[in-house]
Design a protein around this nucleic acid. Structure first.
Lengths: 232, 232
DNA sequence: AGTTGATTGAAACAAGCGTTTGAAATGGTT
DNA sequence: AACCATTTCAAACGCTTGTTTCAATCAACT
């Protein structure tokens, strides 16, 4: 009845089967959702027997939580927070931050199912969500708010800064979460050329900087800013 | 084998059981998702026998599509697009549009499951999605783009206008789709007072107008705009 | 080689699912 | 009252699910 731990609990060179199961589970849960994903399919994809999930993890529920944590950890390892020299201006820090976030959400750097899995947690939180917010989302959010505070030069209150931060995150979020619908609203050619992470980062950044008054407005009176670079 | 239609196919005064089934199905699908929702639970909630879904709709898959369409239709009926007199300035039209969208997404005017159901379609499209986009989302999108075109006074290209429109929608989308996570990032007191549809509409609108240069920047040099109304 | 404990595998289990059945109930029409 | 099509119901069907069983296999150490 008690959950079996893989033999020597301390550590073994490669926890290979367990790793394979967690990876396959993440892929399957991300694509089909918790209920629709089946233990049999996961085990088939991982190349292990169905009994292995019981042996290594316990049951389906624990398998889900473990796979979310595993995806989360490997993601933190591979796409670290950007770090800046103290001399870097706030405009550039904002641009880098947005670019990093979009690259992490949309970029091809990582298998897409990892983001999908976390997107599911965000949209309909389970147990794994609170941990995800505290470890991963809140630190990012705090950094963004700090950058915006610099940009506003203390002229905005914390609630105002938070709302601006959410405005920026919301834009990135849309492209990831509702990407399919966005694809139906925008001409295909435009999608390929303009809706890439760097281009979108430029737009979101300029949009924010213009709103904050750090660059001229997007549609300033007679002023063409479309060819202007967003950072000095 | 052929799908039974409710007796006299043309029309009957009250298609009561069918209506009850579709409503209960929408609620259940919205809350639990397609796979996790069970026909038995839906029928129990609707107060009908499990065989009724076969009799009135056909099978589970068709039940899902019909419930999405039903929710969509009743929503269009209840929250119509705002219409403006030709003299209304573009700033006010933008504000009204955003307010309307947020009220529709977050407001208490309608049962929340209807929006959740459509949110699911947006996030992971099925057959019902394309219809949803064409009938409901694209017209809204076109109106928003037209308003922004007015505001920009022809100084922005169509792709630029579309990206600004998506920026605005993204902000509203975040509060609905990731509302739980937003609730974890923002102090509870702030949530209740500032994260209401009218307050958020004001923020999103001012943010856009500032970016477009139609109102002073949010953090203008020494200029306090926080108490200023967004519309003339 | 032999023993021991960790790991794998095929098969079976109970439970829940969507769906179907055929008879009972219903309500209007003759 | 007798008929009829329409609508409801309890029960069961076949299938898939998550989980468990227990024997077979493997790897390391004596």
């Amino acid at each position: 009845m008690d959950i079996a731990t893989p033999a020597t609990p301390d550590r073994r060179p490669h926890d290979e089967p367990r790793e394979r199961i967690l990876l396959a589970a993440g892929r399957e849960f991300a694509e089909r959702g918790y209920e629709a994903a089946t233990v049999r399919d996961i085990c088939a994809a991982a190349g292990v027997n169905v009994a292995a999930v019981n042996y290594y993890v316990g049951d389906k529920h624990r398998l889900y939580i473990e796979s979310v944590k595993h995806a989360h950890e490997s993601r933190v390892r591979q796409v670290p927070l950007p770090e800046w020299d103290s001399s870097v201006p706030a405009e550039r820090r904002l641009h880098d931050f947005v670019d990093n976030m979009l690259e992490r959400m949309l970029g091809l750097a990582q298998p897409p199912w990892q983001v999908r899995l976390m997107m599911r947690e965000v949209l309909q939180p389970t147990e794994a969500c609170r941990e995800l917010v505290e470890d991963y989302i809140r630190p990012h959010f705090a950094i963004l708010v700090a950058i915006l505070d610099d940009l506003a030069g203390g002229r905005l209150t914390q609630p105002e800064l938070r709302r601006v931060a959410l405005s920026i995150i919301g834009q990135c979020f849309l492209y990831r979460a509702a990407g399919d619908v966005v694809g139906m609203l925008v001409p295909p050619a435009e999608l390929e050329t303009l809706h890439t992470p760097p281009r979108l980062a430029e737009h979101v950044t300029r949009y924010a900087l213009a709103a904050l008054g750090r660059v001229p407005p997007l549609a300033g009176a007679g002023m063409d800013v479309s060819s202007q670079d967003v950072v000095a």
